[in-house]
Amino acid sequence: MSTSPDSLAHHPAGQTRKGLSTLSLQWLGVAPFLLFALLFLILPTATLMIGAFQDADGHFTLGNIAKLFDDSILSAYWISFEVSAASALGGSLIGLLLALAAIQGGLPAWIRPTLMTFSGVASNFAGIPLSFAFLSTLGRMGLVTVLLRNYADFDLYGTGFSILSFLGLTLTYLYFQIPLMVLIVTPAIDGLRTEWREACESLGGSSAAYWWHIALPILWPSILGSTLLLFANAFGAVATAYALTGSSLNIVPILLYAQIRGDVLHDQNLGYALALGMIVVTGLSNAGYIWLRSRAERGRE
């Protein structure tokens, strides 16, 4: 044997090193992106998460998390939850009906692209201009309020309604929630094949049987997942609520906004915990959305 143990050991090692270097060169291609994500997305979020578990001196504590369950903060989460849930449920139901009407309702062909384009616009028309629009519509001097008072002799504000209230905020959120639902549920509705309906008919199933036994079960994961996405979308929204209600409505994003501007809680680390709580809520509902969407895709052939 002329081959020394040394050269035997050496050869594969050299190959590994070469393999590693091409691999690291390949990683260089995505390095700028990863660095950016680290600096402006991951580290800032991580530092808040760590801060949520520290006291003012930097020691570990669960006290901040515990303080989230104080009545005033808990009620902020609860109102946020209610507004988000109401606008998500309403948005997904109405959005689903609109999409179904446009796609399967046997309406003229131009309805569908018009609805889609408009949904693209309206789902992005959130924030401050949207709050202006609803103040002009349902505010004390808004067009609908005035028209109802002058022509229908109906005093909207006399019923206790206010655009600055829970109901007003939900109505306003629906303006971007419904179109968002239309956009994300449309592919699922397009996935309903006409053959399924025909197969159902030829087997003796009525239209109701088709919806109950076939169409709704197939759409169900998409509907539920979309609702969760809408929920997260509303839960994190700041601008619309802030411009509409100022700080009169005690919801989490506004509380957090006030905290960042002026430390209204007089406790920096409690602020971090507040942010962590938001991430947990939106994170969970997004995870649910992704899981349900993958389920819906798997079921399709």
């Binding site: 053959e195 197969a199 030829s202 003796g204 199933g205 009525s206 079921g299 399709r300 052939e301």
Partner: peptide, 17 residues
């Protein structure tokens, strides 16, 4: 529904759920 005629589709049209 009332014809009692069976159909097998080109794309099978099995109900995926």
């Amino acid at each position: 529904q009332k014809r009692g005629i069976g159909m097998v589709f080109q794309s099978y049209a099995l109900f995926p759920n």
